[in-house]
Amino acid sequence: MATTACFIIVSRNDIPIYEAEVGSAAKREDAAQLHQFILHAALDIVQDLAWTTSAMYLKAVDRFNDLVVSAYVTADTHTRLMLLHDSRNDDGIKSFFQEVHELYIKTLLNPTYLPGSRITSSHFDTKVRALARKYL
């Protein structure tokens, strides 16, 4: 499992709708903030990169110091799944993104969920963290 990993889902309106620190490293507030700043900055690159490929998984798109940003862009709503990590486990990240995407679609199917709003389901959170343990 990666020591540092910050996973975020960004809605098409550039609003984070889900955020989770899934790394094994001890949680520090300033580090978590830095992670989000890096992810936010990487949106600029994802935005350009998403149109250059038909693949949803964009691999590592950006990095700052030792931290790498991998991104996965859903086809339908341009929702971006972004992971900040310090590991190089490309396949694991890809599988992680795919599984989370599936979870996200299930959430979207929930009629009480308003697309674009924050995902507050604890079930979703538990599942994502389990997937992170499995793949990262």
């Binding site: 309106n13 550039d14 609003i15 984070p16 955020e19 903030q33 989000q36 674009g116």
Partner: peptide, 15 residues
């Protein structure tokens, strides 16, 4: 309405 709240990343904004 949505455009008004675009890119509202509250964690970063607060920092």
């Amino acid at each position: 309405v949505v455009s008004l709240f675009e890119s509202q990343w509250s964690t970063l904004q607060m920092v």
